[in-house]
Write a protein that binds this DNA or RNA. Structure first.
Length: 669
RNA sequence: GCCGGUGUAGCUCAGGGGUAGAGCGAGGGUCUCAUAAUCCCUAGGUCGUGGGUUCAAGUCCCACCGCCGGCACCA
C-alpha cells in the first residue's frame, strides 16, 4: 500500500465577510473543488482550505450599520458561506475563520518570528486621511479630496508598526525569476514584477483606528493589519502554531487560488511576510479573472449581484459547475448571461452528454435486457470501434494535460469531442438496424459495448467538473468501483464488466425551456437580493438606476421578526390609478404600467401578466409602494411596486383595490 | 500620462508570412436508439484603421483609433 501519497494543499481566498457569498466567490471555490477532485483522482493526498476573513474596518462598520456586534455579524455571514458550500457539495477539507482562537496564536507567532529577525519596527504613518471612508488617500495634497467619496481629507499622523517590505525587493524579484510559474497567468506575473521593480515602501501592519482585529502582541492599542491576519490563516488552517504534525505535513501550499483583485497581497506581501519569518513559500499563486455582466463588473452598487443558488436549484449543481468552468477561460475575464448559461446547458448537457447517456443505456435495456453485452476481443474490434477507442485515448491524454494546466474550458471542450464522436459512432453503426437482424447480435453487442466504454471514459474524465452526474452515469453503466478513485491518466478501454446490469435510464439534464427557466432564475435571484420583508436600506431614489441596497446591504433579515410602527411608516403606500398598461417584448409575466399617484405619473413594472391582460388593468385603482428605490426589470425601469395578494401554489397575483372611490395619490396608513 | 494586453463569421473565440477556421445560434436535409435529441450540408467575413517590409501579411514593422488590465497599504 502506498502510504506515501504525495500531498497537495490548495486554498481559496479567505473570504471577507462584508459581503454575502455570490457567484464570484462560488467560482473560485468551485475551481478549487475541481482541482481538488482531479488531484485526488490522480492519487494525491489533497487538502482544500477555505474560510472567512472576519476582522477589519469594513466588518466593524457593516456590523454597526446592522446594529449587531462585529462577531455576531461575522458569525452570520460566515454561516452563509458554510451553508452555501454545503449546499453545493464542495469537497472542502478545512474551514478557517480568522476570529478563532487558534488564528490569534498563529498570527502572533508569525509576526514575532518576523519581529525577532528585525523586520518589524515602530514608526509613524502620516498622510491625508478621509474620515468618511476611514482610509488614507494617495498623493497627500493637503486639502485634497478623497478619490472615493470626494470629501475633503485631513492630515493625520498615526503611530504604527511597520514591516520592512522595502528590504525584500531583490529577493522577491529573484523568486519571480527563478520560479516563473510562481505567479500565473503570465500577464499577472509581469504586472507584479513591474510593480516590484518600481520599488517597495515599508508597509504599516498595525492600526490604532480600529478595534475589530487581532491585538498587537503586548501593545493593545494596536490591531494587526487585516492582510497580515488573513494571509496567515492559510497556515493556521493546517495547524501552524497548533498542530505541528499537520503543519509539517502540508505546508507549504502547492496553490493559492485567488481573484486578480487581491494579487498583490498574495504575490508580494505574502512571500515577503514568509521570508521574514523564514517559513517556506507557497509554490504557486494563480489569479483568475472576473465574471462580468453585460461587460460590467459585478458589484452591489450596480445592482447586478449574481448568486449561485438559483442556478443550482433550477439546473442543478453540476450544471452550474459546468457553466462556470466551460464558459470562462481560466485566468481571463468571462461574461455571464442567463442566456449563455441556458444555451450551454441545453447544447452540451441536455442534448450532449445527457442524451448520449440516455440513448446508450436505453439501447442496452431494449436489446440486451439491461445486461451489458460481452466485450470485444481486441483483435476483432471493428474499424470504427478502433477509431473510437483511439479517439478516447487521445481525448484522455489531452484532457488530463489541460486539467494539469488548469485549462478547464479546453479540457471540457476536448471531452465533448468524445461525446460528439460517440454520437457519430452510433449514427454510423446504427445499432437499431442491427437489432432487427438476428444474425447481427454479436456486432450489435460490440457496438453497444464500445459506446458504453466511451461513455465510461467521458464521465471519468468529466468527474472533477461534474461529480454528481458522472457518478450517476458511472453507476448506470453497472460500475461498482468508485469513480472518484479512477486515475484519469490510466483509464482502460475495455474495463467495463460485461454481464452486469445497467441501471435505469434517468434524465440527468432535462432540456430547459429557456424563457421559463430564465424567469424562474430571475425570480429566485430577486428573492435573494431583496428577501421578502426587508425594508430597502437604499436612500430614497438617491442612486440612479440601481435596485441594490447600498451600504450595509449584507444585512440578512431576521426571519419574520416583528417590526414597530416606525418601520412600517417607512413604507409609503399610495392610491394609484392605472393610466396605461402594455406588455414588454420577451417577458411574459410582467407588464409596464403608467400609474397616476397624485402629484405624478410613475412608470412601474409589475408582475401581473399571468393574472391580468393590459386592458383589464387600465382604469383600476391600485395600491402602490411609492418610495421603493427604482430598479430595472427586463431593462425597463420600475419606480414603485403594485401591491397584490399571492394566491395558490404559483403565487398568482391578485391586485388590491378599493371598495369605495378614492382619489389617486391618497396615502394609506 | 506611463506600462502591458486586446480588436478575426450574428455570439464566444482559435489561428502568428504562402489560397480565412471551430463551437454555438440560424436555415435546409436525415435517422429514429435517445431528452422535438443525434447525424449531414449551409458562414463567402475590407481578419480595428492607415502606412511600410516582402514574390507573398490576420500573421512581421510603424502610426493611429477603440476596448481591457496594472501603476501600493481598498478583502
Amino acid at each position: 500500500m502506498p502510504e506515501t501519497k504525495p500531498k497537495y494543499y490548495l486554498t481559496t481566498p479567505i473570504y471577507y465577510v462584508n459581503a454575502r457569498p455570490h457567484l464570484g466567490h462560488t467560482y473560485t471555490t468551485v475551481v478549487a473543488d475541481t482541482i481538488a477532485r482531479f488531484m485526488r483522482m490522480c492519487g494525491y493526498d489533497v487538502v482544500l482550505l477555505t474560510g472567512t476573513d472576519e476582522h477589519g474596518q469594513k466588518v466593524e462598520r457593516a456590523a454597526k450599520a446592522a446594529g449587531v456586534t462585529p462577531q455576531a455579524y461575522a458569525d452570520r455571514i460566515a454561516g452563509e458561506y458554510e451553508q452555501l458550500w454545503k449546499e453545493l457539495d464542495l469537497s472542502i477539507d478545512r474551514f478557517i475563520r480568522t476570529t478563532e482562537p487558534r488564528q490569534e496564536r498563529a498570527v502572533h507567532r508569525l509576526l514575532l518570528q518576523a519581529k525577532d529577525k528585525g523586520y518589524i519596527y515602530k514608526g509613524f504613518y502620516e498622510g491625508q486621511y478621509c474620515v468618511f471612508d476611514e482610509m488614507y488617500v494617495d498623493e497627500p495634497l493637503p486639502g485634497g479630496l478623497c478619490p472615493e467619496c470626494k470629501r475633503p481629507t485631513e492630515k493625520v499622523r498615526e503611530e504604527n508598526y511597520y514591516f520592512k517590505l522595502s528590504e525584500f525587493q531583490d529577493r522577491l524579484l529573484k523568486l519571480y525569476e527563478e520560479q516563473p510559474d510562481f505567479i500565473q497567468p503570465e500577464t499577472r506575473r509581469n504586472e507584479v514584477m513591474a510593480f516590484v521593480r518600481g520599488g517597495l515602501r515599508d508597509l504599516s501592519v498595525s492600526r490604532t483606528t480600529i478595534k475589530w482585529g487581532i491585538p498587537w502582541p503586548d501593545d493593545e492599542k494596536h490591531v494587526i493589519y487585516v492582510w497580515y491576519d488573513a494571509l496567515t490563516s492559510y497556515m493556521t488552517g493546517i495547524g501552524y502554531g497548533d498542530d505541528e504534525v499537520q503543519w509539517e505535513k502540508y505546508w507549504p501550499a502547492e496553490l493559492h487560488l485567488i481573484g486578480k483583485e487581491i494579487l498583490r497581497f498574495h504575490a508580494v506581501y505574502w512571500p515577503a511576510f514568509l521570508m521574514a519569518a523564514e517559513e517556506p513559500l507557497p509554490k504557486k499563486i494563480f489569479a483568475h479573472g472576473w465574471w462580468l455582466f453585460a461587460d460590467e463588473k459585478m458589484s452591489k452598487s450596480r445592482g447586478n449581484m449574481q448568486y449561485p443558488q438559483p442556478i443550482a436549484r433550477t439546473l442543478g449543481i453540476d450544471a452550474l459547475r459546468y457553466f462556470l468552468l466551460r464558459e470562462m477561460v481560466f485566468g481571463q475575464d468571462g461574461n455571464f448571461s442567463r442566456d449563455a448559461l441556458l444555451t450551454r446547458y441545453n447544447a452540451d448537457l441536455a442534448n450532449g452528454l445527457g442524451n448520449l447517456a440516455s440513448r446508450i443505456v436505453a439501447m442496452i435495456h431494449q436489446y440486451f435486457g439491461g445486461v451489458l453485452p460481452p466485450p470485444v476481443p481486441e483483435a476483432s474490434l471493428s474499424q470504427i470501434a478502433v477509431a473510437l477507442a483511439s479517439k478516447a485515448a487521445e481525448v484522455q491524454d489531452v484532457a488530463v494535460q489541460y486539467y494539469e494546466e488548469f485549462k478547464f474550458s479546453d479540457a471540457l471542450e476536448s471531452i465533448w469531442e468524445l461525446v460528439a464522436a460517440t454520437d457519430q459512432f452510433l449514427t454510423e453503426k446504427k445499432p437499431w438496424a442491427l437489432a432487427k437482424d438476428p444474425a447481427k447480435q454479436a456486432e450489435l453487442g460490440e457496438v453497444l459495448f464500445a459506446a458504453a466504454q466511451s461513455l465510461r471514459h467521458i464521465v471519468a474524465l468529466a468527474h472533477p467538473v461534474l461529480p454528481h452526474a458522472s457518478t450517476k452515469i458511472w453507476k448506470q453503466l453497472g460500475e461498482r468501483t468508485d469513480i472518484a478513485s479512477q486515475d484519469p491518466k490510466h483509464l482502460a478501454w475495455g474495463a467495463l464488466r460485461p454481464g452486469t446490469h445497467v441501471g435505469e435510464a434517468e434524465q440527468l439534464f432535462p432540456r430547459a425551456d429557456k424563457k421559463e427557466t430564465s424567469e424562474r432564475i430571475e425570480a429566485m435571484e430577486d428573492e435573494i437580493r431583496n428577501p421578502a420583508g426587508t425594508p430597502s436600506t437604499a436612500p430614497p431614489a438617491a442612486t440612479p438606476a440601481a435596485g441594490a441596497p447600498a451600504a450595509g446591504a449584507a444585512t440578512a433579515p431576521a426571519a419574520n421578526a416583528k417590526i414597530g410602527i416606525e418601520d412600517f411608516s417607512k413604507v409609503e403606500l399610495r392610491v394609484g390609478l392605472v393610466k396605461s398598461a402594455e406588455r414588454i417584448p420577451g417577458a411574459d409575466k410582467i407588464l409596464k404600467l403608467m400609474v397616476d399617484i397624485g402629484e405624478e405619473t410613475r412608470q412601474i413594472v409589475a408582475g401581473l401578466a399571468v393574472s391580468y391582460t393590459p386592458e383589464e388593468l387600465v382604469g383600476k385603482k391600485v395600491v402602490v409602494v411609492a418610495n421603493l428605490a427604482p430598479r430595472k426589470l427586463r431593462g425597463v425601469e420600475s419606480n414603485g411596486m403594485i401591491v397584490a395578494a399571492a394566491v395558490g401554489p404559483e403565487g398568482k397575483p391578485v391586485i388590491c383595490t378599493f371598495a369605495e372611490d378614492v382619489p389617486p395619490g391618497a396615502k394609506l396608513k
